[in-house]
Every structure is written in C-alpha cells, then in structure tokens.
Write a protein that binds this DNA or RNA. Structure first.
Lengths: 176, 176
DNA sequence: TCCAAAGTGAACCTGAGGTTCCGCTTCCAC
DNA sequence: GTGGAAGCGGAACCTCAGGTTCACTTTGGA
C-alpha cells in the first residue's frame, strides 16, 4: 500500500470517528470525506460502501470497550468504580454508531457476539455495584444499560459532561 | 363545517400527537393519516402542509405547558415540587415536536415568544428550588433545562419512566 | 334528490445522500 | 528521470423516502 494511501485511510477513519461522536451516525459520506480533506471517491477507494466503514469503526470501538471493561472489572476497587470507568470509556468512544449498527440488520455475527459479551460485562459491573450497596436496586442491569445508552449515544456528549454527573448521582445509592 | 369534517380533524390531531410522542417528529404524513384511519388527501384538506400541522400541535402543546407551569409555580409548596410537576407535564406533552420546530426556522414569532416565556418559568422553578436547597447548585438553570430536554424529547418516554426518577434523584440535593 | 363539501390514494415532485466513473495526479521501482 | 500502476477528485448518476397534488368518488344535510 502506497504511503499516501495509508495516511489517507487513517485520515478518513479519524474524521469519521470524530463526526460520529459529534453528530451521531447521521454524518454523510460527503461530510466525512470533506472533513478528512479528501474527495468522496477516495473514501470509496478505501471502503466499498458506507456499511463497511461503519463496521470497521464499530468493531474497533466495541473491541476497545470490551477490553477496557474486562480489565476494569479485574482491577477496580469496587463494582461502582468499574461501572463509572466503563461509562466514561463509552462516552469517549463513537458508540452512537454501534447503536446505529445494531438497529440495522448486520451481516457480521462477530460484532453481535462482541456486543453481547460487552453487555454482559456491563451487567456484571452493575450487579456487583448493587450487591455492594453502591447502586440503587430498583433497576435491572438491563434497565441501567438502556439508560446508559440514552446518555452515551447522545451526539456531542463528552467526558465530564454534567449530564453524566447527574445521571451517576441519580444511580448511586447513598446510606440514608 | 360538516360533522364528519370536524370529527376527522380531531382524529388527525389525536393521531399526530400520539405518533409524535411515540416516535418523535419523524412520523410521516402518510403514517399520521393511516393511523387516523384516513387518507393523506384528507390530512391535506385540513392542514395545507406539514409545517402547519406541526405548528398547530406545537402551539397547543406550548400553551398548555405555559399555563401549567404558571399555575404550578403559584400553588406548589416548594420550588422543587413545582419543578417536578413541570417535568411530568413536559413528558405528557408532544414536546419533542416543539424541539423539532425550534430547529427549523419558524415563521410564527408567537411560538418563539411562548417558548421563551415557558423557558423563563422553568428557570424560575429551578432557581427557587436551588435557593431552597433542594436542587444542586453546580448547574445553571439553562444547563438544567438542556438536560430536561434530553429526557423529555426522548421518543416513547412516558410519565413514570425510571429514567425520570433517576434524573430527578441526580438533580436533587440532599442534606449530607 | 341533489350538490357542495369532504374523502381517497395513486402519481408526481423534490431533495438528500449513497455510489460510480473516468480523467487527472502522485508515488516509487527501475 | 521516466513509466505506469496506484491513488485521487468530484461531477454526475441513481435511488428512495416522504411531502404534495389532483381527478375522481363518496357523503352529509337541506
């Protein structure tokens, strides 16, 4: 692969990730290309269609999340800490896209499996935090995950957004 | 106006409101008509275009919210209670639509004014609740309103949704 | 019974966005 | 330096969803 081609491929992926985080999965191929400083044709040289670009980013994003969540569950001092860490990681990733992907029927069973296993890790963190008395018990892990996705998939959200602080405070169970 | 015409007009408005609450402002004219059990042509007999249907519902919705908020501010025992009441009212209204309207340049300055005055009432409730020590003080009324809109504009949200409970708990300031 | 008002939905129109394609440019092995 | 394969650009094309129209049928009510 020629050196400029490799560089451009990275430019495209970077621009796409930024746009997906910023505006959600609505970003058009045109926008992505322009934001990378390239023409649409170039984009299509590297990714045969929109779907494949989506899949590439989703796969990468999910893989990172999975690895992070696993590590965090192993090392965090408590379930609550693991949970908070995972949420922060989610926010930093173009996950809105993963959601978009999961809304379209996807031909990559690999991704589905990965998403499922990530969900299981999140549920594990929630359950642990609930057992340790740090997270309210009137919600199922699935409900918590749903809420999480509302926050995390919000276009333009950034780590440290007050919405996250409020949300976490609302989930936290404090000794009365 | 013929009796069937009046009845159908009401059917259309009802169906549109339901769909807007359910699926957000993405509902198409076709869907609205079918859901009302009528043809598109009938819809267009009553509302010359989509915009005017939107405006009619938005105006009504905003007017209710405004009236409710004002009454609530006058009678609620505390700023916090007023705030909670207003949020619940928002959720019951097709407000997602109001947001959609505010995203399109709108030729109805009447609506803009109403929206502005409603915002002011909400800000008033927030400020009062903050002064009374019931609502966290590290957020401006505008920030609270932004969060509110995230929750309220979520398609399919219903009064009593756990998301609202968690959100309110996160906003509440409890004596340490 | 009559007809203006109202209803109907297939057809039309438009715009947004994905995709293609071909002439031009750039890299790089020789 | 040069040839040419690899890469780039972006206008043009295609498709599809959804708003809108309209010629025709049905209906309320006098």
């Amino acid at each position: 692969m020629r050196s400029d081609a490799r560089r451009n491929r990275d430019l495209i992926l970077g621009a796409a990730v930024d746009l997906f985080i910023e505006r959600g999965p609505a970003a058009s191929m045109e926008e992505i290309a322009r934001s990378a400083g390239l023409g649409v044709g170039t984009l299509y040289r590297h990714f045969p269609d929109r779907q494949s670009l989506l899949e590439e980013i989703a796969a990468d994003s999910l893989r990172r999340l999975y690895d992070y969540a696993q590590a965090r569950l192993d090392t965090a001092p408590s379930g609550w800490d693991a949970f908070v860490g995972i949420i922060e990681q989610c926010v930093a990733l173009p996950l809105a896209l993963t959601k978009a992907v999961s809304e379209t029927p996807l031909d990559k069973p690999e991704l589905d499996a990965l998403a499922e296993r990530s969900d299981a890790l999140i549920a594990e963190a929630v359950t642990r935090a609930q057992k340790q008395g740090d997270l309210r018990r009137d919600l199922s892990p699935a409900q918590v995950a749903d809420m999480l996705s509302v926050i995390v998939c919000r276009p333009g959200i950034r780590p440290g957004d007050p919405l996250i602080t409020v949300f976490l405070d609302g989930l936290r169970l404090r000794p009365a």
